[in-house]
Design a protein around this nucleic acid. Sequence first.
DNA 1: CGAAGTTTTGAGGACCTTCAAAAGTTGTGG
DNA 2: CCACAACTTTTGAAGGTCCTCAAAACTTCG
Lengths: 250, 250
Amino acid sequence: MSEAATAFANYIAKLERRGAFAGEARAALLGVPVRIRHFGAYQDIVREGERPQESCFVESGLVSRYRTLPNGSRQIVSFHLPGDMVDLQSALVIVADHGIRTHVPTVILMIAHDDILRIAAEHPSVGRAFWFDTLVDAAIFREWTVNVGRRNTRERTAHLLLEFNARFAAIGMVRDGWFDLPVTQNDLADALGITPVHMNRTMQWLRGERLIRTHSRAVLIEDMAGMVALAGFDPVYLHPEGPRSAPDGV
Amino acid sequence: MSEAATAFANYIAKLERRGAFAGEARAALLGVPVRIRHFGAYQDIVREGERPQESCFVESGLVSRYRTLPNGSRQIVSFHLPGDMVDLQSALVIVADHGIRTHVPTVILMIAHDDILRIAAEHPSVGRAFWFDTLVDAAIFREWTVNVGRRNTRERTAHLLLEFNARFAAIGMVRDGWFDLPVTQNDLADALGITPVHMNRTMQWLRGERLIRTHSRAVLIEDMAGMVALAGFDPVYLHPEGPRSAPDGV
DNA sequence: CGAAGTTTTGAGGACCTTCAAAAGTTGTGG
DNA sequence: CCACAACTTTTGAAGGTCCTCAAAACTTCG
């Protein structure tokens, strides 16, 4: 472990808050070999169809996962903030069915799949924590399906901004209500399944209704109650409460 | 284990094809207590917001998971066929963020969360198999997000029908190209994020182009190449190849 | 300070929705 | 086993949301 990897230590602490690790589990995780990689903005970490040997963890910066369709359009399926394990799933899945790329300069910790699987097998409490992380991932995907399937553009945009607000707040990156969202309207459109032109008009509408404020890439939820009502936002799907604990005797 | 639970035995065999179980893992799974429940059509198995104590497995029939929005519209986020574990995820997650209901008369095996977690902890090879099942789940959710986000109605519908065809084929429920899809156009519309009226017109278009044939609720992919091209369908996301195997020494 | 990228504006049109009602199918009780 | 009710599929027409194409204004960065 490098002393630079502060977010990773926080990640382990978060896993433990969800359920204490038994015995030497924490030491095993803290001792896992990591490879630090620095990326610029808009660089691919994993390309679609690759067979990565490592999972990646966001130490700082911002990354997204995406799929590109034959017609060239792109759908972003998730964003990942500092402290997120991006693709634990690739530890078990052989072929990546999506790509991962940065949006801003980003520091990534690469962890070998073999190490992840070994620790999960040797320490059931860690295996359960990883599994839970995957479940929260799946819950967020479900919510995104609902979002693009059943909400109009205004509701959809409000919902995504509220998700960002909640997730940035959870890692202490909201100050006086403002958080930095280094994502272009083009990329937001790719996440919401709309065109950049319509994305722009929707942002203008949200500002005009005094629901949000922006300057440069910073965002403030100005009217929280109005936004929550508009989006039908219920943060349950982010599962901040952590997993059910293990049954007795485990 | 009841002798009636044939699909469950097949499920265990499927997990093993993806990676052999060590020691007594298979016996532990086969010996898990199950509660058999019979449901009629359109009955709730789990309501949104409930805190279930058991996960459910589809022995026969068809179920879907859905979210209902404040405005009353519904989004179906997944369908589950015989042989599917529907909500392994609920074993770890406390509050259900979605509902589960049947579409036709259905036999469900209920398995206590404590038993699932205990077996996963005691037998790492089973824990890994469950984790992988969750990952495939998440991959399907991602693909649905892409589907509703970036494909038009015709492509979307073709994609969903191809997914059904592939999944029914995998459990031997396709005969001469035909499979039974006991889902109304209303429910298909809820899965694809469109209105029932437009769903109907899209089905008519697919039939008119001789891409599919239907009678009653049976479906035949008449022009497979045309459908695959239209939908941009790549079954990689269904991950039929199974997970990466465990590293040496585990 | 110039170049590249991002946001904004305008106008026309396609896709999908909404509302309403008819036709067809399935299931159930008398 | 038929008759009726409930549900599902189909049709029509008008309208709104979102897209496409094109270009201008604004920002950021080397």
